[in-house]
Write a protein that binds this DNA or RNA. Structure first.
Lengths: 211, 211
DNA sequence: TCAAAAATCACCCGTTTGGGTGATACCCCA
DNA sequence: TGGGGTATCACCCAAACGGGTGATTTTTGA
């Protein structure tokens, strides 16, 4: 029996997946989550064999969920199931520990086949996904931002000036500038405006549409 | 018995919806479609009471589907069910003949309730959607960017400096600065970094990570 | 038709930014 | 034990930026 946890922020999609999977006699959905924080909790609690994970989640991205879970246990396997075939999500997802990556326009048959393959130790990659992976391999920039740099970047995206960032984080302006220099080189950009664009488009900093 | 047709290009979502709705004793799914052309054919053939319709479809958009169907028969009611809460889709959808507009993050209970309301002649508009309608109504007066300003903003999001923008658009730097001043005040921001954030988060400039 | 908006440019001026080149101190891990 | 990354700060400097004010021409809309 394959134990599953389904994570998707759209109840319609999530419940649909659950009821669909319930027809499979060798699978059992043991948990659901509608956001990232809930997902981490449910996964650690239920210890499922496979997690169906949407990347776009409120609170905590799918990438973050995988990182946090894998920090504590490594035997859970992740199947990323997303609408977005954008290149930039695939590499981070795979390097964060996803074993599979399917698009939502796959058929139910493919999905259940992928789940079984994953539970059996395989790594089902959709052909379209695999192709994208190869092309983006060439320019694989695994420059990870440090926690502090993330703090700065978030404020940068919020539109803060160096002075404001310094005040917010209790730093000197010089320190902020130092962090920014590192951020720029890691993101391979020249200006803060470009950094904001890259951060948002690559999903490094989540969209915060409270406005 | 409410006769339904489900239209969504993602098999996972579509099949999920179907199996979810099959639990309702007063509803019957009499047809499915994965693209716009198929949808029109199925709807005209089955003459359902209610159509669950995703707006984003291959071949023919949801809007187009509604127009074509309503040209031949007017007794079918449409419930638009989409992931996108973007303002610009709501008004066209409603004017094209949708009686309801729900987001995919509504609960199954809300969905079935909406279907029953629709079949009974009501027009279920999600509160969030209704709110957006109102805000887009009253905010329509303020601050639309001109075409030229959009040109500048796009390049700004791409990370260009004033000089680069000027070169790209065959303008003087002064003109670019002038446009930027207007953009800043219209977007109510102070810096180019903030402008980029707002432009991306509000969807004024589309995400385009082809790099 | 006539005013309002959009689009184009110029000049000034103070502030911010980004890129250098340093330094100190901490922690990890090899 | 020592190197490498992180985090903290300082100083300098040129370039870029953002805010004014003001001008002309074209387009648009009421």
């Amino acid at each position: 029996m394959i134990r599953l946890v389904v994570v998707d922020d759209h109840p319609v999609v999530r419940h649909g997946l659950v009821s669909m999977l319930s027809y499979e006699s060798d699978m059992q959905v043991v948990g659901e989550a509608g956001d990232g924080a809930e997902a981490v909790r449910v996964i650690l609690e239920q210890q499922p064999d496979v997690v169906l994970l949407d990347l776009r989640l409120p609170q905590l991205s799918g990438i973050e969920v995988m990182k946090q879970v894998r920090a504590k246990q490594t035997d859970t396997r992740f199947l990323v199931l997303t609408t977005y075939d954008a290149d930039e999500y695939i590499v981070p997802a795979l390097s964060a520990g996803a074993q599979g990556y399917l698009l939502k326009d796959t058929t139910p048959e493919e999905l259940t086949r992928a789940i079984r393959a994953l539970a059996a130790g395989g790594s089902p990659l959709e052909p379209a996904v695999a192709a994208k992976l190869l092309t983006s391999m060439k320019e694989s920039d695994d420059d990870e931002l440090s926690a502090r740099e993330m703090d700065v970047l978030k404020l940068l995206v919020a539109g803060a000036s160096n002075k404001m960032i310094a005040a917010q984080l209790n730093l000197s302006e010089n320190t902020v500038k130092s962090h920014l220099s590192h951020i720029f080189s890691k993101l391979q950009v020249q200006s803060r405006a470009e950094a904001v664009a890259v951060a948002l488009q690559r999903g490094i900093v989540p969209m915060d549409r409270s406005t």
